[in-house]
Simulated scan of single mutants.
Amino acid sequence: MSLSQSAVIRMIATGLAIPFIGFGINAIFNPDRALAIFELPSPPADRVLVDSLMAVYGIRNIFIGFAVYAASFLGTSRSLGWTLIGASAVAFGDGAICWTHGHGQWGHWQYAPMFTLLGSVILGVFDGPWAFLMGKK
């Protein structure tokens, strides 16, 4: 059996939806705590704006979590793999934004490669030469 067909790998990938949903719920209901993840101060003058933007961020994360679940339970291995790689791009992007503020990037960059790696495994990148491009597993 090829690595991309492993049930354990697929379960791990599916489990990665949980942190996205958790971060999303946290951002909606506890925006100050979510800002702490980015290591950004909570500006008291723009409280309503910050809380609204954190809710938007939270909804985005919940969507990503549900997209991973949908791709895992209803889609193909290819859709799950590319969804995970897309989720890693979000984490890399969040880290890049934190980096422009001088700190907080490693809170995002530490797990983004894991999503890329698992997505690549599920796509079949490690199954053989060009298997993931040819759709062969």
Rank of each mutant, 00 (worst) to 15 (best):
P41T: 15
I18N: 02
K137Y: 12
W106R: 02
T100Q: 13
R78I: 15
S77C: 08
V48T: 14
L80E: 01
G81P: 04
M114K: 04
F38H: 13
D94W: 09
L117P: 04
T83K: 04
S52D: 14
I122K: 00
G15C: 01
S4H: 04
A67V: 12
T100S: 15
G93F: 14
Y57I: 11
G119S: 15
T100C: 06
G81S: 10
V125G: 07
G75I: 00
P44V: 15
I122S: 02
Y69I: 11
I59D: 06
A34M: 10
A13E: 00
I59Y: 09
P31Q: 00
I37S: 04
S4T: 01
G104L: 01
W99G: 05
P43K: 08
V68S: 00
I85S: 12
Q5C: 03
G24Q: 08
H101Y: 15
F20W: 09
L84C: 04
S72R: 11
L117W: 11
I12M: 06
A45N: 15
G128A: 03
S52G: 06
D51W: 14
K136V: 13
R10C: 01
S2H: 09
R78E: 15
T116Y: 13
I64G: 00
P19V: 02
V8W: 09
I9M: 15
A91M: 14
S88F: 05
V121D: 08
I37A: 05
V48W: 11
I37F: 08
G104H: 06
A36V: 07
W130A: 13
A27Y: 07
S4M: 03
N26C: 10
D94Y: 06
I62S: 01
I37C: 02
I25E: 08
W99F: 14
I62N: 01
I85H: 11
V48E: 14
E39M: 04
W130Y: 13
A27I: 03
M134C: 07
V125M: 10
S72N: 10
P43L: 14
K137G: 10
M54D: 06
H108A: 01
R47S: 14
A45R: 14
G104W: 01
S79P: 03
L84I: 08
T76W: 12
H101N: 13
P113A: 03
G75E: 03
I97V: 09
N30T: 11
G135R: 10
L80C: 00
D32E: 15
L118H: 03
F92R: 00
V48N: 10
G75L: 06
T76A: 05
S52W: 13
